[in-house]
């Protein structure tokens, strides 16, 4: 199979004006992907499915990614020459900018006919709140239906053109999106014998440390380090 760079160039030649960007994965997996613009995503998907050299006829996986708002600090170094003739000073300027968050739908495509893949597609929403739309690829690959519903249910990505976009795992009355980074779970904590991390914080909130142990509870066992509470 051709490389993703070749595929991107072929797509750009075939669909003039389309947005196709190669997103590289710097990790060890090096699974690079193609970021498609929303306007021509479905035409490109149809092309990937029907092109005789590709025949990506099988969409194995659809998932979502939440990219929350991110504050990026950029440091610019400017060299200021010293008027007295000494060594030049380096002045650092820090500028903060807020990169708005967005949601992504990721598709993993394989070819059953030609036995190659995966080709990974990404679709990106404009933001995380009121414009969380991407075009649905269910009309292209029928098997995306339930997985796009799952991404809608857990991430809140609205797939326009989906034939039956309802919640699939949570109940219909549910309002939150549990797989988003800023999801706040209901506060129904109860004591767990091994609290750690976020559980420990909840334990401290729900069961505050008593100043003096009450009389009816047995005294705490001595700590192994020898320090008494």
């Amino acid at each position: 199979m051709e490389t993703l760079e070749q595929l991107r160039d072929r797509l750009l030649a075939r669909f003039p004006g389309a947005e196709v960007t190669l997103v590289t994965n710097p990790g060890a997996a090096a699974q690079h992907s193609l970021l498609l613009g929303a306007s021509q995503a479905r035409e490109i998907a149809c092309f990937l499915r029907d092109d005789p050299a590709l025949q990506l006829d099988y969409c194995s996986n659809v998932t979502g990614i939440d990219w929350p708002d991110k504050e990026i600090v950029e440091t610019t170094k400017t060299t200021v020459p010293d008027p007295a003739g000494g060594p030049a000073k380096v002045v650092e300027q820090k500028t903060k900018r807020l990169q708005p968050g967005y949601l992504e739908a990721v598709y993993h495509l394989y070819s059953m006919a030609l036995k190659h893949g995966p080709v990974i597609l990404r679709l990106r929403t404009a933001n995380r709140t009121d414009q969380a739309n991407v075009p649905s690829l269910t009309p292209v690959w029928r098997g995306c239906e339930f997985q796009e519903r799952e991404a809608f249910d857990l991430f809140g990505i609205v797939f326009t053109g989906h034939p039956d976009l309802r919640r699939i795992l949570m109940w219909d009355e549910f309002k939150d999106f549990p797989m988003r980074k800023d999801y706040v779970e209901p506060d129904d904590y109860e004591w767990e014998p091994t609290p750690h991390g976020g559980v420990l914080e909840k334990a401290a909130k729900h069961y505050p440390v008593a100043a003096t142990p009450p009389a009816d509870t047995p005294p705490a066992p001595p700590a192994p380090e020898g320090k008494q509470p």
């Binding site: 939150d176 209901p186 004591w191 069961y207 142990p213 705490a220 509470p229």
Partner: peptide
């Protein structure tokens, strides 16, 4: 909208009372 309502039946279930020392 966020959880089952009520999240527990208080006639059947009470969370454990634990005093951390």
């Amino acid at each position: 909208a966020h959880d089952l309502e009520p999240p527990a039946n208080p006639e059947v279930f009470q969370p454990p009372t634990i005093v951390r020392t």
